[in-house]
């Protein structure tokens, strides 16, 4: 089962000689990735999430690289924004997937079922909403958390903001 057949049914888009994108529905993405892993894509270079605010959708992208085939295959899938849940690929790719998913959970709030430990990676004891989401207004957050109206030295900042 070569990798072309696996992704042929999902209409792959060939960006450049060694860059191929393919859109896979949420339910089948785990099986496709597992088959691709066996087909030669041993290297999971990154997992990233794009936040399409107006479509109300998170787009999770898996960047897979293969040393033998020498192609970068980007598997993309869409998950709803309000309850972003997806099956974790840690059983397939192990620790590299774990770190990426941990960061994405922290920054976007995407829940990866089956990930052993989703504790915060960068933002220790963070009380705000996931910061990378487009609807997170970080100016207001910073204003409340770090600058207070009463303090003398912060007055200058408040004049700038209120103007």
């Amino acid at each position: 089962m070569s990798w072309e057949e696996i992704i042929s049914e999902y209409k792959p888009v060939k960006q450049r000689p060694r860059r191929i994108w393919v859109n896979v529905p949420k339910e089948e993405v785990y099986d496709v990735i597992r088959k691709l892993r066996e087909a030669g894509f041993e290297h999971l270079s990154a997992i990233s999430v794009t936040d399409w605010l107006n479509e109300g959708v998170f787009e999770v992208t898996y960047h897979l690289w293969s040393y033998s085939i020498k192609t970068l295959l980007t598997v993309k899938t869409k998950i709803p924004r309000d309850d972003p849940v997806i099956k974790s690929v840690v059983p397939i790719y192990g620790m590299s997937a774990w770190i990426h998913e941990r960061e994405l959970h922290e920054m976007f709030g995407v829940v990866f079922e089956g990930n052993p430990d989703l504790s915060p990676l960068f933002l220790e004891d963070w009380d705000g909403p996931p910061p990378f989401r487009k609807d997170f207004n970080w100016r207001d957050y910073v204003r409340e958390k770090f600058y207070s109206k009463e303090r003398e030295r912060d007055k200058a900042y408040w004049e700038v903001w209120l103007k």
Binding site: F122, L123, G128, P131, W138, R139, Y141, V142, K145, F146, Y147, Y157
Partner: peptide, 9 residues
């Protein structure tokens, strides 16, 4: 980084 959410001021 005066208005960044993650750095101390």
């Amino acid at each position: 980084y005066w208005d960044s959410y993650n750095t101390i001021k």
